[in-house]
Design a protein around this nucleic acid. Structure first.
Lengths: 110, 110
DNA sequence: TTTATTAAATGCAATATTACAATAAAGAAG
DNA sequence: CTTCTTTATTGTAATATTGCATTTAATAAA
């Protein structure tokens, strides 16, 4: 049905999956990398540097904002985006708690 | 169009996004957690423990296999799945290289 | 006020994803 | 061989995602 059955999973499983999903598109990875280098906070700059149309970039920015990973600030006619540091660190902690599952105690049965 | 323009992004950006995408569903997080606890390598056990139909679990297992994160081994009529340790560690390194982008040198302009 | 400039919102088309019923395939048990 | 068990495959429906042209909104500049 294209709809995820979130209710049968734990809060943690849903949060991890949602964060991973937000990172699950190369345009959004590219946007975040640019924001980390902080040489292009402005939406228009991102449109120029990444080869996608303005509405498409705007949409990806919206998703990153919904995920809490970035924040935007209106400056005249343009909008300045940047990493939401606090949420970013929280996301990192959440993902790492999962990624660091102890692989040494796990049996590779195949 | 529902189709990602992979060709305009770097190989690294696509690889990071693809790995994140594979982790972008709570059922797949749940499957991986079970495999880490290794108390249910068998596909049928996962179907019982997670509340999704057998074809749905099978489909998620296939995606995790395509992403290289797990491997499967036929044992009689049943199939035993487990974490692909080598690829898992590689994925972790890849994601961490991105997640660990130096946040301290980044300006929070908003 | 009029005219740019910039970004968000809307609307649409194409494709992808999620989920499951029904079926097929492959081996085990009788 | 027949039957049972287990998993993959196929087909289908519903929803989500990606991408862009067009329009709208809001501020700046003239």
């Amino acid at each position: 049905m294209g709809i995820t059955k979130s209710e049968i999973f734990t809060e943690e499983q849903n949060r991890i999956a949602n964060m991973a999903k937000a990172l699950g598109h190369p345009a959004r990875i590219s946007i975040l990398q640019h924001l980390f280098q902080s040489d292009s906070c402005i939406c228009g700059d991102l449109v120029d540097k990444i080869g996608l149309a303005q509405p498409t970039i705007s949409q990806h920015l919206k998703e990153l904002k919904n995920a809490g990973l970035i924040k935007g600030n209106v400056e005249g006619t343009s909008v300045c985006y940047c990493i939401h540091k606090e949420n970013w660190m929280e996301m990192k902690k959440l993902l790492n708690s999962f990624l660091d599952s102890d692989i040494s105690t796990t049996s590779e049965c195949c």
